[in-house]
Design a protein around this nucleic acid. Structure first.
Lengths: 192, 192
DNA sequence: TCTATTGTCTAGCAGTGCTAGCATCGAGGT
DNA sequence: ACCTCGATGCTAGCACTGCTAGACAATAGA
């Protein structure tokens, strides 16, 4: 059976290559540039090979999103770990979130902007997505205040950050004032 | 010169027809369904006619966005006009915003999600866009608090609403709790 | 060594945004 | 009333998209 195992390993490796290449291409030139032809050419296989791993382009986006969600969870926990006290923790979380979005715009798009065929806010939501939300919740839950459920507070805070990210990147907001916007959000929304 | 005037009138009418039809089609079946072929067929002209009015699809989206911005400004001012006191005004504004987004998803996309080739947050930003922002500012400026510039407060509040709209519509947030989310936003962000 | 299966590729479909170039229509001058 | 000529809208087609059918080659097992 060793032959079959080797084949499966190779197959899994190629799948990782596809996801990594799609992500790289998207970060370099945007998701519009990630066409099945270009992607196939970069991994040095023909187009149909992509479809033996994924149902379509959407699923490839979804795979990048899942990978990104795991990384985001790690990044957020790392950002908050060093901070002392609730105020500093929330501020660090917010900055960590914006930093991640700025450094990985294509991944951020895959996660929250594009259709990757993933289910959110449900029981069958994939683990990495739940975990990324959990990373937010761990930090924000303690500043929700008594009258507000931690989960809902986290959603609102998250939505606010997301709004800043998307409007800034779409040219609707100027990037210069991001710092002050985050401060305002932290000072007013969080109960310290 | 009357002949030329008539021709210009007809041309302007056809341009309005294009924009209205694009908007209608987008609201009915989403922007993906707004192809130049389908749009041309609906207005009962051939594709190239579209390009004698607009440089491309992007500009058509931009035209819909401008129309939408004017309507949004009207809707927001109407929503706040009836409210008594700062708290009620801000709440009414927020609900008005979410209502507009929910009732005109395609227009909202054209305004804030898609690339319509418009310039935002600049001096040469088109009037309707400035006016829509002004409508927000008129209401939100009075609850920004002393320490925060009205413009920046408005941007943050707007971004928060925008985050809720986009995440909800993308299935990242459940629509049921929208009411409470808005309440939280109003209670915490606004200085009353 | 031969066979059967697995895997990959070539070629093609229907659709996209956009445009070159032709045909037709009608306004303005004689 | 007729002819000219420019404006205007059309047909046809380009290069691209996501995706797939079917031919072909490589390879594992007998």
């Amino acid at each position: 059976m060793s032959v079959q195992e080797r084949k499966e390993r190779e197959r899994a490796g190629r799948e990782r290559l596809i996801v990594a290449t799609a992500r790289e291409l998207a970060e370099q030139q945007g998701w519009d540039a990630v066409t099945t032809r270009r992607l196939a050419e970069r991994i040095e296989y023909s187009q149909p090979v992509l479809y033996s791993h994924f149902r379509g382009k959407r699923e490839i986006i979804g795979a990048v999103a899942l990978q990104g969600a795991s990384e985001m969870a790690v990044a957020l926990r790392a950002a908050t770990a060093a901070a002392d006290g609730p105020r500093a923790r929330v501020a660090a979380l917010a900055h960590g979130y914006l930093d991640f979005a700025e450094r990985n715009p294509a991944v951020y798009d895959a996660l929250f902007q594009l259709d990757g065929g993933l289910r959110y806010a449900r029981e069958d939501t994939p683990g990495p997505l739940k975990d990324a939300f959990a990373a937010l919740l761990e930090c924000l839950g303690e500043v929700a205040g008594d009258a507000v459920p931690p989960g809902m507070f986290t959603e609102v805070f998250w939505a606010s950050l997301h709004g800043i990210v998307t409007l800034t990147r779409a040219g609707r907001l100027l990037p210069e004032d991001t710092e002050q916007r985050v401060d305002l959000l932290v000072d007013r929304l969080a109960v310290l």
